[in-house]
Write a protein that binds this DNA or RNA. Structure first.
Lengths: 232, 232
DNA sequence: TGAACGTCTCTACAATGTAGACTCTAGGCG
DNA sequence: CGCCTAGAGTCTACATTGTAGAGACGTTCA
């Protein structure tokens, strides 16, 4: 082989153009989606782009900043229409969209959930705060007092994130091995200590996340609407 | 200084006794509590215990297993009484307990939330599954059909974890710098794009997580009870 | 006494994030 | 046209990490 030929071909062959933040972040996201969070190292990403790893520091100050960028990028896939007059319908739709987004990028969910914990609210990437702002707008326009809008948002987003975490925890990629794996795992549990869980194995195996989310949202929204009427 | 004197004294001086899994995990937890997750390295933990880092592998196969052990340890602080006939009161109490536990160990919360994502349900540390089993027991004893109990559990725990994440995200350690930091951060946001959020700064500053959790739980429980009556 | 075993320790290595200096290239100015 | 400066890209180097593998040590049984 010719000496200057890159020994690792997976880098896109033609793309030796100029780099950009978007390109870098997209590549990072692809990497995370396909191989998991811990596969996203500077060297690995560099080789994916056919560039020296050090060059990446021009587009992300840190590895942490890179992670922030990735979660921002993912959240940008979420479309919110703050002008919809039917706030309940809109919140329900957003919930399902976010759920599907999480299922599409399961490896990014840990980022979505933990990165904000290490960054005070005001210092987060702007793309991360946009959903919050837009939902507040939606609720206030619908007639909620600003403080009540915040309460609704918190209850809503709290439940939503919780559900997503729940569902992903039970999620197993290949539905064929689903039941097998599940039984395998549950079988390990001492029957004395875990009778309920073991008995529920078949129910656990078919989990309809979409329906479950929808029910939860219904309960929560109607409860919230009753307590804090938007016309008050 | 004498050559064989350990340059890092913080290791407990007297405790040269036999190690045990509990001791190791407790030390790990202390480390995480006081200095954060990324401070928990094998070497650092070893020096905390005055032992060679390699010795730790006798009590935890991996660093990952160590992390699992820590979250298990924390979850064990949670007391559940599956025999309480008043399931709603019990769930409400557990919620508050778990919230306080999270506030006590904020650095462990990312573990609690993300570790299960990388481990199929049946293979988790037993201590992690105990709350699930016990709450199922509580609900089934209260009259729920097993499958319904699972639904209730999911909605409940989903909301609970979501709330905790929410609250920790807005949590700032020193309440004095709370408002300052908050304003500082929010001030950075472009007013054109984030008018609602900026206007809510004072409301954001005093967040009563306990009350908010309680309200949410009330809404959720009454909704769930209405939909799936335990006497059905 | 000797042997065997479980515990602890040491050394070593590959992989990571990143600082700092170097090279290269494009474009503006004389 | 030639130089020169600034920024993008690259190379080298280093401290820190998890962990394999071999050895040392002490305790316990035959």
């Amino acid at each position: 082989m010719s000496p200057e030929e890159n020994p690792v071909p997976p880098a896109a062959p033609g793309t030796k153009k100029r780099l950009s933040r978007e390109i870098v972040l997209s590549a990072a996201l692809e990497l995370v989606d396909s191989e998991g969070l811990e596969a996203l190292t500077m060297r690995r990403l560099g080789q994916q782009l056919g560039r020296d790893p050090m060059g990446l520091y021009r587009y992300a100050e840190n590895r942490a900043a890179l992670l922030d960028g990735v979660s921002e990028l993912v959240l940008n896939e979420l479309a919110i229409f703050p002008d919809d007059p039917d706030w309940q319908a809109q919140l329900r739709r957003i919930a399902h969209d976010l759920r599907e987004l999480a299922l599409r990028h399961p490896n990014v969910v840990p980022l979505l959930v933990t990165r904000p914990l290490s960054t005070p609210l005001g210092l987060r990437p702007l793309g991360t705060l946009r959903p919050l702002e837009q939902i507040l707008s939606l609720l206030i326009d619908a007639g909620f007092a600003p403080a009540d809008a915040l309460h609704v948002y918190r209850a809503y987003y709290g439940y939503l994130y919780g559900h997503i975490l729940n569902e992903l925890q039970e999620f197993i990629v290949d539905p064929d091995e689903n039941e097998a794996l599940l039984r395998l795992g549950l079988h390990r549990l001492p029957p004395k200590d875990f009778p309920r869980l073991r008995a529920l194995a078949p129910v656990l195996a078919d989990y309809d996340g979409k329906a479950e989310l929808d029910e939860g949202i219904t309960i929560l929204l109607s409860g919230l609407a009753a307590r804090l009427s938007p016309e008050a």
